[in-house]
Design a protein around this nucleic acid. Structure first.
Lengths: 194, 194
DNA sequence: CCATTTTCGGACTAATTAGTCTAGAATGTC
DNA sequence: GACATTCTAGACTAATTAGTCCGAAAATGG
């Protein structure tokens, strides 16, 4: 028999998120990428394919992981409002952590590639459909429960929530003040109290 | 005497916004940039300096131009609410126009460079201070006029408005549907009716 | 110990990068 | 028409780019 694979796929993908998030897709050179991943050049090509392949893998992993958690929250929670608050609390919390925030910025780099990489564009279209539906259904449920009393268009509100979550990483790029993220989130979610 | 300058600085800067906005700063190669600008290589270096110099000039021009208009709106308008609506209507309108939207995306590329280019970071810090103050003072005025009846923290609301305007370009990157921008803006500004 | 596979490191290529230089054509003022 | 300046086009450099190839070291299970 032979030597067994020793790369932890998950770990490497998370490191890739950090590197791509920090330098952007085009801004990440092979040497920088390899140093960030801690593996040799040949190992990258053997195991993950080209730089673009790895980028797409990392983006898919990030988006799917986060979005799945959001869907679970929305579907399982007793209180829809509390679920939504928890979802935003989570992303704000991560963005406030000096270390954990790093990988979030791959989202920004990924959106940057939407016009140039059809696979990335398709990924976000699917993600948007999935999450907008999840938000919408949760909002409908909350309305029926009388948990929600707003008379807003729930479809529009769902879209608003979907994009608001993602735009927090842009806000985080513009300021390091953790308070700002909280303030903005507070205002954003006050929408649910109308 | 001699031949006179023939480049229209404004025109070239706007073309630069479109190119950098489309390809991103790192994604824009010299050949692509020159073709987009419609000038020769040497003319670029003679007139605008390096690629980075031109990028920074274009970003500054874009941000200052747009933000100055916002400040004017906020200071001169009779109705603060109407001014804010007009400000958002304007950006949504531009983002809906197939041609005019192109240059808006330099904002996205610029924010991408905030962690790497101190001059860009300083520009946004100044811009944020200026606009948050302008929004805040307008909101205070509206509150005194009884035009605004919300009991939100006006400082937080000002920050929210500042970032909401900028995040619209991220939304525009994710979808071409012009209706989405309107919907999201409607929800965003419904905040003022609380 | 052996066979197999993984990993590594460095050499290598071909293309592309930003930026400089040069020579000449175009343009405007006197 | 003479002169100063701008603009262009292309050659050129030195560095960097992504990706391939090769040989040896390391590790694993039989």
């Amino acid at each position: 028999m032979a030597r067994s694979k020793e790369f932890d796929m998950n770990l490497v993908l998370h490191k890739a998120m950090e590197v791509f998030g920090h330098y952007g897709y085009e801004g990440t050179s092979l040497p920088i990428l390899l140093e960030g991943l801690g593996i040799a050049r040949q190992s990258l090509y053997d195991t993950y394919g080209t730089k673009k392949d790895l980028f797409i893998k990392a983006v898919k992993h990030y988006v799917n992981e986060k979005s799945s958690a959001v869907v679970v929250y929305l579907e399982k929670s007793e209180s829809v409002k509390e679920a939504i608050h928890a979802i935003f609390r989570e992303i704000v919390f991560v963005l406030q952590d000096e270390d954990r925030r790093k990988e979030c910025f791959i989202l920004y780099s990924a959106i940057d590639q939407v016009p140039h990489e059809p696979e990335i564009a398709a990924l976000f279209e699917e993600d948007r459909n999935r999450l907008e539906r999840a938000f919408y259904e949760a909002l409908v449920r909350a309305k029926h429960n009388q948990e929600l009393s707003t008379d807003q268009d729930l479809q529009a509100l769902a879209r608003y929530l979907y994009h608001s979550r993602y735009t927090l990483t842009q806000v985080a790029k513009l300021t390091n003040d953790p308070k700002v993220l909280e303030e903005i989130t507070t205002v954003t979610l006050s929408m649910l109290e109308a």
